[in-house]
């Protein structure tokens, strides 16, 4: 029992205490510097009725699902290419990590400049090529803002998928592919029946971790749009920031975060169960 004490202490101090403290905050009228009183479900009622809350729910789901899907497809495609015997493979493998190792702050400021309607490279290029007649305000139009944020986020984070999948692919025996080729299996069939099933466990772990990470992403929205235009890119982390750090209402901010907890846990469970079933099939 004594041997377990350090583990229990770390678990209590670093995980359980902050977790339950955050939940307690959601039930209090805590503001900065004041201890706060228990207020029941008042904060929850307040934030649910807040105009940006429903937008935050929808946007968080859209952002998470789309960004994870894009990162998955892009990461898998790049991993498949880099798993081939191509010239300069090691260089490309190292180069691939560049977006991921760059500080998020730098990445998103660069993307903001790329999207800029007056001085941005994308608008210049599209206009020079005659594709568009006038500049597009990618981040400021409701119809393009969320997609633009997702693209920037996916660009920064897909290398993690690619590297993880690549590592998994390298453990698959070449003999499996050789015998499949002898049996006349096409490239797509080899991918579907050998590569993909061999990667299920890695895919599971990657999706699990990155779904949580994507749903909790804050920098792309904060640095690119601030949640706007209007509430077009208002995700829940941005709402928590505005309520807690800008408006200094910690109880309300904690209530938003607590309300999202079941959604996040649910999403993670769905991903885990689906992959587990697939792996066991």
């Amino acid at each position: 029992m004594g041997l377990l004490a350090p583990t229990v202490a770390i678990l209590l101090g670093l995980i359980l205490y902050p977790f339950f403290y955050a939940i307690w905050l959601a039930f209090s009228d805590k503001t900065i510097g004041n201890p706060g009183q228990f207020v029941g479900f008042r904060n929850f009622a307040y934030v649910i009725a807040w105009p940006q809350f429903s937008a935050a729910v929808t946007n968080t789901v859209v952002f998470t699902v789309c960004a994870v899907a894009i990162k998955f497809v892009l990461g898998m495609a790049v991993a498949l290419v880099l798993n081939q015997q191509i010239r300069g493979r090691n260089f490309f493998r190292a180069f691939l990590l560049l977006p991921w190792v760059m500080p998020a702050f730098v990445v998103y400021l660069v993307w903001r400049w790329l999207y800029d309607p007056l001085a941005g490279l994308i608008n210049y290029a599209l206009m020079d090529l005659g594709i568009i007649g006038g500049p597009i305000a990618f981040l400021s139009d409701r119809s393009t803002a969320m997609a633009s944020v997702i693209v920037a986020h996916a660009w920064r984070n897909f290398p993690f998928y690619a590297i993880s999948f690549l590592a998994g692919m390298q453990t698959i025996s070449q003999e499996l592919y050789d015998s499949a080729q002898v049996d006349g299996a096409s490239r797509v069939q080899q991918f579907r029946h050998i590569t993909l099933p061999s990667l299920y466990h890695i895919i599971g772990v990657v999706l699990l971790l990155t779904t949580i990470q994507t749903a909790n992403a804050f920098e792309p929205v904060y640095l690119l749009t601030g949640g706007g235009p209007s509430d077009a890119t208002m995700v829940y982390t941005m709402l928590v920031y505005v309520m807690g750090m800008v408006n200094l209402r910690l109880g309300e901010a904690a209530a938003v975060a607590t309300l999202f907890l079941p959604l996040l846990i649910g999403g993670v469970l769905i991903v885990t169960i689906m992959l587990q079933r697939k792996a066991n099939a």
Binding site: D116, P117, L118, A119, P135, A137, L139, S140, A145, L224, T225, G226, G228, P229, S230
Partner: peptide, 19 residues
């Protein structure tokens, strides 16, 4: 108004004028 003002942050009016 220049395009994009609905997502401008607090530095954009400065930089646009300075440019």
């Amino acid at each position: 108004l220049p395009p994009g003002v609905v997502t401008w942050d607090n530095t954009m009016n400065n930089s646009t004028y300075q440019a």
